[in-house]
Every structure is written in C-alpha cells, then in structure tokens.
Amino acid sequence: MKIIKLQTLCLAAAAAWLAWSPAAKADPADASDAQVDMQIDDQPGYQPSAEEEQLAGPFERQIVFFRTTEAPGTIVVHTADRYLYLVQPNNRAIRYGIGVGRDGFQWAGIRKIIQKQEWPDWRPPPEMIQRQPYLPRFMAGGPGNPMGARALYIGGTVYRIHGTNQPQTIGHAVSSGCFRLVNADVTDLYDRVPVGTKIVVKQAADL
C-alpha cells in the first residue's frame, strides 16, 4: 500500500504521510514547511510521466538575461533561487530549475566537471540505508533510478549535478542529492558541457 505518484499539490499531505511512516523518520520541522524544505524520500524505480517531466513557469528551461564576468560555457548555480545557469554570450544564460539537497547547501566555490555519466548508478547514502535497511546498496542505472538520466561529477567534492525520477522536487530543497534537474534538462545540459567545464556555486549570504 503506497502512493507512487506525489504531485506538487499534495506534497504537504504526502510529506506528512512520509513523516509518519516508520520507514521515513522525517524531521518534523521540515514536514511543517513542506513548500520550502520538504522531507521526501527518493523513490527508486519510479518512472515519471512525460507530463510530470514538463516543467512549467519559472522552472521551465529558458534563456534569460544574465550578466556575469564568467566566460560563456561556465555553469553558475544559485542554490537559494534554485536555478542553474549555463552562461551564453551577450549577457544571457540558459536557466534550468533545480532541486537542491542538503548536501548542496554545504558548500560554495569554484570547481570543474571531471566526469560525465549516462544513466548513472545509484548508491543510497548510508543514512538512508540505516533508515531503510532492506534497500539495495547499489542500484544499476536506468529509467527508475533516482539519479536520473545523466550525471556530471564535480571535481574535488562528492557532489554532482544529476537527473531525477521525481520532477516534483524541482524548486525545492530535498532530503538528499546535490543538484537535481529533470531528465530532459540534465540531458540537455550534459550535451552542452564538456568535461573540464568550470562550475561556480553561489549560496545566499547567511547571518
């Protein structure tokens, strides 16, 4: 007995349900503010429909005005706004909507993309195994894998830009993962950026 699709409209209820579930020990503070920071487990194996993958509104992939001193081809991530920009010539950028994991909030800086992978494998993080001991320690890449269609590995860190099988998490801070895009977007980005691409991650100032 399980809901396998969680639409944005029912996230609050779903988050509460997951929080209650003994399998997912959610932080109550997160569940109470589901719009901002929702606790939602990865749904390994879940395959989103084409409609779900089509983002509308601000998180839809689009070309925007963007001034920067970074060279065209650079990836700039604004975690607070949940956008990833691929810098283009003439004061513009391709903007992608992203979901940011807790991990993604732990660092800012300048790195390089060191590896690219199609249909990456997934290894659930240790705290997830602890919570759900029956989980496979390794899940082969493919449709339904929480890592999605593509991954770009960020050098010198354990972080990566990857796809997702949960399009509804775009625009939110989610419980795990780094920077996640819908599969169509991460595939678009993957095809545009070579290994060696510079990535600049900016956090909002904190008090």
Partner: peptide, 20 residues
C-alpha cells in the same frame, strides 16, 4: 517573480553580486 503568476525572470533586478 518566480513565486508569482507572472514569473518574471530577475534579470537586471538581480543583485549586482548575482548577475544583475
């Protein structure tokens, strides 16, 4: 902006530190 139905990209109105 992004949290309204207009959804205007921040563009020039972004902070100077963030591309505006």
């Amino acid at each position: 902006g992004g949290k309204s139905k207009l959804g205007i990209a921040r563009g020039l109105n972004q902070l100077w530190t963030m591309g505006g």
